[in-house]
Each structure stands twice: as C-alpha cells, then as structure tokens.
Design a protein around this nucleic acid. Structure first.
Lengths: 337, 337
DNA sequence: CGGTTTCATGTAACCGATTACATCAGATGA
DNA sequence: TCATCTGATGTAATCGGTTACATGAAACCG
C-alpha cells in the first residue's frame, strides 16, 4: 500500500504538497496538482483513513447503536430495514459511513458503558440510536458521549442529543376518530408494554379523542401486549370474552392487529362486520393480510432522513442540538374497518 | 481525551508498559498491571482505535457493501433484516464491528471502483457483500480487494473470496416434487430476471424434477418476473390465459407468489383448489396471507452466521478461502397447495 | 562464583496522514 | 532600486498508539 511519502517521493514534491492536493487543491498550482493526481492514479494511491482520523479527529463515521437487547433474541424494530435504507442513503450523500458498533469487549455484557466505550474508542463523529423503548441503561449512558447523538423512536435528550419520533399521540387520535366516525361506540385497545413511551402516547391520544367524543373507555377494554403477534392474539381473545363485546379495536402495533384479526376469525366472527380492527405502523403485511388492515402509518423513510439531517446540523456545529423531530402520522384506509 | 502517554506519566511507567497492559497483560507484573488498570479507570482512558489501526493495520472492522443498485430506489433484499441481525450478532461475538460503506466520493457515481476504494481507504479486515444478483460492476470489482470477502446470495470467487448461497436448485426440486406428489401434472413457474443466478438455479432444479417425473414444461408455462409483487400478479394473469390452464404454479419468490394468489383470486378462482401456489423464501407475509403460502424456506440466520464464520476462517489466515457454503432449503407446508 | 536465563520494563522508531510555520522566488509599487 | 506582498512549496512537529530491540536486576546452574 503506497503511502503519501512514497507518492511525494515519486512526484519530487513534499508530503505537505501532496496532502494539499487532496484537501485544499485550490492552494496548489495547476501543474503540481495534475502531476500528483496523475501519479496517484498510476500507483493507486489512496489516503489512509485511520491516519487522517488520527490527525484530524474526524472520521466521517457515524456510530450505530442498535439491537442492544440481548435478553430478547427476536428483538426487532418494525422498520429497521426501511430506516437503515434511508439513513444510509442520506449519510452516504454526505460522505458519511455508518459503523454498527459491537459492545466494547473490555466491558462486561451487563456494563452500562459497553456502548459508550465503543463509541469513544472509535472517534465517530456522531451516533444514531435505534431502539424501541427498551430503555436499556447502556443506551441511556450514551447521553454522556461528547458527540452528537440522535435517537430514533426514543425520547433522548442531553447537551448533544436529540431524537426523532412519530406523532404517536396524533396517530392514536386519528385511529379513535376514524372508528368513531364509522359509528363505533364501544372501542377497546391493545396497547404496548408498560413504560414504552410510543405506546403510552398512542394510548393517550386515543383516550383523549374518545373522551372528547364523550365515549367511555373501561379499564377492562385496555389490554397490554408486547407488540408481537401472539400477544395481539391473546389480548383479543380476552377482549372477546367481554360482555358486551367491543365492536372495534385499536392495536398499538400492526403485528398485534394481525394477531387480533386471527383471534377474531378463530372465534367465528368477521372483520370488520363483527369487530373492526385498526393497527399502527403500516408494516408490509398490513396491505396483504385480508381484508387489508386499516392502520396509522409512520413515515419510515423520514426516520432515516430526519436522523441524518439532525446529525448534519450538529456536525455543522450548532451551539444547541436541534429540536426533536416529530414525524406526521396518517391514516391508511383498508378493509378491516 | 487522555492519551496513552498521559496515562503512562501518571503511573510513572513507560508507554510501552501501558500498551502491554492492554495487549499482552501476561508479560507485565501483577503489580504494574493493577496500577495501570486502576489509573486507567480513574481517568477514563480508552485506547484510540484509529491509532491502533494505523500501527497494526488491523481495524476490527468488517466492511459491508450493500444496496449498490442506485437505479432502483426500492431495491431490497428479502432477508436484509434477518441477515443483518445474525451477521452483526456473530461478528460482535468476535469483537468485530460492521462498517456500512458509502461509495468513495473521490470516484464518480458510475465508477466501478467506488466501493473498492472505500474498502481500501478504511483498513477493514474483511468485507461482506449483500447483493441480490444485480451483478453491479462496482461489486464485482471488490474481488480485487486484497482482503477477505464473503458475498451473500451471489456467486463470487477470487483469491480471497468466497460466498454463501442457499441450495436453490434443491429448493426448486423440492417445490416440483411437492406439487407432483399433490397430483399436479400441469405446472407453471414464475421465474426471476434473466441473469439472476439464484432464480436460474431454482428454475433448473424445478425443471430437472419435472423431467425426471416425465412431466413436460412448455415454454409458455415459464414466465419471467422481477421478484416484486406486481410482476407476480402480471405473470399469473398471463398464465391464467393459457389453455389449458396450469393447475399449479411455482413462484421463485414469495412476493411474486403473493401477487399470483391475488391474481388468481381476482380471476374468481380459488387457491389451492383451482390453482395451487408455492413460493420461495418464506418471508414474513407467507405465514399471514391466506390461505397461508406453502413455500421453500431459506436459512436466513444461516446467511449471517455462515458469512461470519467464513470470514473468521480467512482472518485466521488460511492459505485458500473456505469453500462456498450452500445452505439447505426446506419445504414449509401451508394452505396454498 | 561467573556466566547464562528469565522477567519486567524502558527507548525510540514507526504507522500515514495534517498543518503551523518558514522559506523563497517573482510580481508590485513608490 | 528596494521593500513588500503574494503564491507555491517545504520542514518538521504532531496525532496516539505498537513493537523490535536494549537494558538491568534477579534467579539459576554447573
């Protein structure tokens, strides 16, 4: 691998000049520039990023902390793929690479500093956190990183931190309003795990809209799930035992909604005639599962692009981190309501 | 940020000793080791990875080249998420980080060296390529990287290269055998784009099994799709116009199979009674779309773990790259056949 | 007891870049 | 004509580690 010194020697110039050709080409003469670039192409010279990072303390890498919950092997964020595609695209456009960090081996598996340490060792210019509400201490510890941080789907603040979330409360309101408009007066909901902020917001918005419409929400009509399919099935089964039975259900996640539909079918009832179902997320299956799941969609691509933008703003050196971004949610009408 | 020299000074030892404490602790005395570790914890010292990489030429980073097809914004690999989860998990276990590389900005958008250059600049210890048969020159150029490379779902050979694929031919055979066993004698297929190797293998295995069973496959019963839903719908629509109409269809991808089911339904026919459908991939929707899609499943997690293992083998310094891995495919019976 | 090992540690070169500062030739201007 | 400015380039310190080699003390051994 040819170094800058080798290239400088071959060109008969100093290393400083070569460096300038690549970093501040405008200060070097046309003639020298072409000489160096030509020779660089000839011998296949490429600057070594580690050396540049060492010298400049800028790595052009953004750390990605993700999938931190080792206790749950099936952990997944519903939009991981969409977010990654958008995030990588947006960062690439700025010449930034995305480093998916392994926990620091020097810290034990339970050490809350295992990601912070990994971040600090690698001179990343910023960090993106993808979580879904686990509130893992190892994630929260990242607020201490003296580096711009953007968290997705997680309230996350700090002197150099901001976050992106969907308008979950608004989405919950949309769902309630839609069901009310469809004439339902007894509406149940399957919410997410206690302590999960997006789930709580969805429930809050939903409840608010019901209250405004003068529709009561009994405690027994609020059942907790864990966002996965089976929990939706189980929750719905319980709801169907209620007397009177709710005529509509708002599930705080599409997977749970699909599970609910399954349970309704198994009980010999029809969707939406006997029980209407509305979900949240608009995952791929929503469009494909019959009768088509009406749902509240999140701007999946927006997560990635907004994260990149917030990060770029902080990298540009604003004194205070950008305000948290709230992505709009919208209703997608399909057959289940 | 405290440096190794700072730490050495505070401990009253040389930088070499500090370095040894972290890299070859067995050669330094118990006493000194504890002194250094204690002080390191106290002042929060962490070694700088860029500096280590510069000195050792090992970065503990694996480059990930992915989503190279800029012409198709919706590009996606059916298993990207599963692969990433497994890959990251397996690499993390070995202390390796995954660097999702942006194309080198110094190369134009169409430059076939844009990924190779990014790889070379970053001192990555290895490269993983996720492709789905685009045969992008920028991907093929990576064979010249003097670094271990593992490609997923792509035949990719070279002095330091190997690849992981599913047993696509075997899967095609499984699909055919299953339909034959179900009594079908007129079976059509929706294949992938010309030049797509996995698709070609699936077709080959499928065709082979039919031939062995003495069942003809007319040219008109082979229709080409592009792996996406709409193409499956369109292909099936054409197949339904055939006279006689096939009684079963093998789609080389689940999304196309779902599209096919949709087309069959829209034509007023039933699945599987009028036309049976079998897919390939076992994506999430397969289980959820009624009547449940019978399909050939790939070992999604296996892609990630096998890639990590092949990579580790090459990093361990074997003279020749490991043989390509062929992951077994198996049949998943559901309601569509 | 002198010589050889062994163990712990130190010295200093090196990895490949960036960059503050110095230099120097030629152009400018009074 | 000489001082001054400008533009292009060079010198050398620096970033934060690793590691070959040197050193010196203690242990071992015939």
């Amino acid at each position: 691998m040819s170094s800058i010194r080798e290239l400088a020697r071959r060109c008969g110039v100093s290393v400083a000049t070569v460096s300038r050709v690549f970093n501040t080409p405008e200060v070097v003469s046309q003639q020298t520039r072409q000489l160096v670039l030509g020779m660089a192409a000839e011998i296949g010279y490429l600057p070594n990023e580690s050396a540049r990072t060492l010298a400049t303390k800028k790595s052009n890498m953004v750390g990605l902390v993700w999938d931190t919950d080792h206790r749950r092997p099936g952990w997944r964020h519903p939009f991981l793929q969409d977010i990654l595609v958008a995030l990588k695209g947006a960062l690439s456009a700025h010449g930034l690479h995305l480093l998916m960090l392994a926990p620091d081996p020097g810290a034990g598996p339970g050490d809350p500093r295992r990601f912070l340490r990994a971040v600090q060792r690698h001179n990343v210019d910023g960090v993106v956190i993808i979580d879904n509400g686990s509130r893992d201490p190892a994630v929260l510890a990242l607020a201490d990183a003296e580096v711009p941080c953007v968290a997705l789907d997680l309230r996350f603040t700090g002197p150099t931190c901001t976050y992106i979330t969907s308008d979950n409360a608004g989405g919950g309101r949309l769902a309630a309003a839609h069901l009310i408009e469809r004439g339902h007066r007894h509406i149940a909901t399957i919410t997410g795990p206690a302590g999960n902020w997006p789930a709580a917001q969805r429930l809050a918005g939903f409840r608010e809209a019901l209250t405004e419409a003068g529709i009561p929400l009994a405690d027994g009509d609020v059942v907790t799930g864990d966002f996965y399919l089976d929990s939706g099935h189980a929750a719905m089964t319980r709801l169907l035992e209620r007397d009177p039975r709710p005529t509509a259900v708002f599930a705080a996640g599409d997977e749970m909604a699909v599970g609910a539909i399954k349970a309704i079918r198994e009980a010999g009832l029809r969707v939406p005639d006997d029980v209407a179902v509305i979900g949240f997320d608009d995952i791929e299956v929503a469009a494909l599962v019959p009768p088509g799941l009406t749902t509240v969609t999140q701007d999946k691509t927006g997560f990635g692009t907004a994260a990149a933008e917030s990060l770029m703003a902080m990298l540009a050196g604003t004194a205070t981190p950008p305000e948290p971004t709230t992505l709009p949610t919208t209703l997608i009408l399909r057959g289940s309501t």
